[in-house]
Design a protein around this nucleic acid. Structure first.
Lengths: 209, 209, 209, 209
DNA sequence: GGATAATCGAGACGGTACGTCTAGTCTTGTC
DNA sequence: GACAAGACTAGACGTACCGTCTCGATTATCC
């Protein structure tokens, strides 16, 4: 994953532009045609690079495509964290999901592909977790934590569990190719905040039976 | 997908044993080596069959492997539905998840792979949804519905939403290769029933702020 | 080199047409563009075959091209041996060379290429000797032998040596890309029959000095 | 081919040692492993040089290897031309061939490879002709001419034809990987001087029939 | 002596052929 | 017509190599 190759200083250094061009070509082609339909030859040609320049930097087509999309994901997450200080938990959750859904409008198919690839490649899965999933988990957890506010109440909540439910639902819908819209975001937020029975007291007792 | 081939046609009838042997070979090989490492030639050889006997029955390697694992899933789901009528919702959810997690202990990696494949193959995704995801959604929804019992209270609950959260969490953990154990099952059940704040009233007000 | 593959009898037998089409494609392409400029992909495409069908029959591009031209050479040599019984040695030699030069007009470049390839591949060289060089050596030796006629005089002659000189000169000119014309044929024939000094007695004494 | 680069230009002059090291590395590696198995990278590494230092001096790998072996050939030919004035033609021819065969003992494989390469590279063929073949042709022609001695007799002889036969036989045997020994040298010399029938008068009449 | 310029080793670069592999289809002879 | 065996087309993969380009460092000549 070290793309600079500047450990030693002898020989011609790797050109950052070549690596960037390959990443961009990979990203564009996979978005346009899907992972399977894109070949390393196509990526190299689109980038104006030789195939060897590709394999000098990444061990396989899959690693390259992962990097191509993680690059993009990093940018988006940075923009997202410019939050104010929301006070309502349900609203916080819902708006976080809405914004995430919007971002997935473009990158969804590629992200799905990445998760799919990672299922056959443990190292890829590790990268995906470390560089895509975990940062977002933390971002959502922080947002939820801020919305709860009070320290004591926070301790009583299973924030990480809530984050798991939220992202679980997101991925489930994404992978099954079911729509991710604003209504769904509010529905998920409501469920997570209040549980299955909604804000009323009804299910309190039912579960206590 | 028609495995009998006994529509009253002329010629030698298809041998049921051949199809079964292929399914078993596919299941075993994929469990052992993973989807990508297994080739159609290997499956045919392991089953003592010709490749044509494979493609006479399934349209692609992916469909075959899907069938190989759905066969197993069908058996498991049949056993699971032989339930009585539990009354406690949280317990119902938890035990459903526990049993599902146990079944995934063996077939999990293959199921993950199927979902991964489906990301590049719409037809496979459709099959996966119709034959694996939907039946299980319905089974869980029915169990939840039965546990709630009362008709009016049922109407107030977002049962489908709860099912989405439960299976979402399951897939999320499965795809990220995070453990699926009994503690997790209870945690998910608790979250779904009571929401993030747990059975206490605290978060009612918080969300009402 | 066994192109039928019919040792066992199970499975689909190799198609003779495919092999023949590949040979012809290889021959035509190499004649047109030269050995280096022709790729296995081009040969397969021209033959309407897959690359695997090529590598199933030959171990490398070089082996294939050898076969492609030996096939042709065999045909030509068959036609050539339909000789009468000439009596004049110089004339016999000259006309043999003339006819050979004519045949090389078309296949010369390819034959040169084969000899070149054989310099890096001992197995290829062996094939070339056994299937191209030796048969022709024998054909010329037989023609020379017949032209001399008398048994006793034949024993006094170094027929094989003469054949070596004739073919040596041919290859030398061929490889150096120097013209092979009728005048050259007669010149070589004259030298071989009479030696450097020509039909006169002059050099007899010179060499006896 | 100018290896000094010292035309009075500015900048750091080319090191003669680097060029010599490259030549020696090329010669050794090609003798050891053959032309194809040796790469430019290997030559540069063996010489402790960069690849650019190689291509600064030669236009291609083939030209370099040609030079590597011509260097050796030049030395050999120089020694050879320090001859007295032999008078017996057959002996002159034979001893010339014997010495040439000895030299080929070491460099034969590489020379063969060069001729092979030249079949696909007209420019290389030209170099090979100008710098290897022609000088040797002239050397042999001069030796033969000197051996004949008498001006009038010389005019009656086809000296160039004899040289063609001698070198033709040499290359023919070399390329076919057939032994080049002393007996062969004398045999070729005898054939060239006297023709197929040997020193007797027998074939004079046969050819005159 | 400082500027200029060509050299040096090292190795990345574009391009492209090679030989291997796989999926899914087609063709044998046998049952 | 199903069956086992295996050849078939098509085309992607990752490696290898050539000849060029680029880097920092070195070594000469010229001003």
């Amino acid at each position: 994953m070290n793309m600079t190759g500047m450990d030693g200083r002898r020989g011609r250094p790797r050109s950052g532009e070549v690596g960037a061009a390959i990443l961009e070509a990979a990203r564009n082609l996979v978005l346009r045609h899907g992972y399977r339909a894109v070949t390393t030859r196509m990526i190299a040609a689109e980038a104006g690079a030789g195939k060897q320049s590709l394999y000098r930097r990444w061990r396989s087509k899959a690693e390259l495509v992962l990097d191509a999309f993680l690059e993009q994901a990093r940018i988006e997450i940075d923009e997202r964290t410019q939050e104010g200080a929301p006070s309502d938990l349900r609203q916080t959750l819902a708006s976080f999901l809405v914004r995430t859904f919007e971002a997935l409008d473009r990158s969804g198919p590629a992200i799905r592909t990445l998760m799919a690839l990672a299922q056959e490649d443990p190292e890829l899965l590790r990268s995906l977790r470390d560089r895509l999933v975990e940062p977002r988990r933390r971002a959502l957890a922080a947002a939820v934590s801020a919305a709860i506010g009070d320290e004591r109440r926070r301790a009583a909540c299973d924030i990480d569990g809530a984050v798991m439910l939220a992202y679980g639902a997101l991925w489930y819908r994404l992978l099954l190719d079911e729509p991710l819209d604003e209504a769904l975001a509010h529905r998920i937020a409501g469920l997570i905040v209040d549980g299955i029975g909604g804000p009323g007291q009804g299910n309190r007792r039912a579960s206590a039976t």
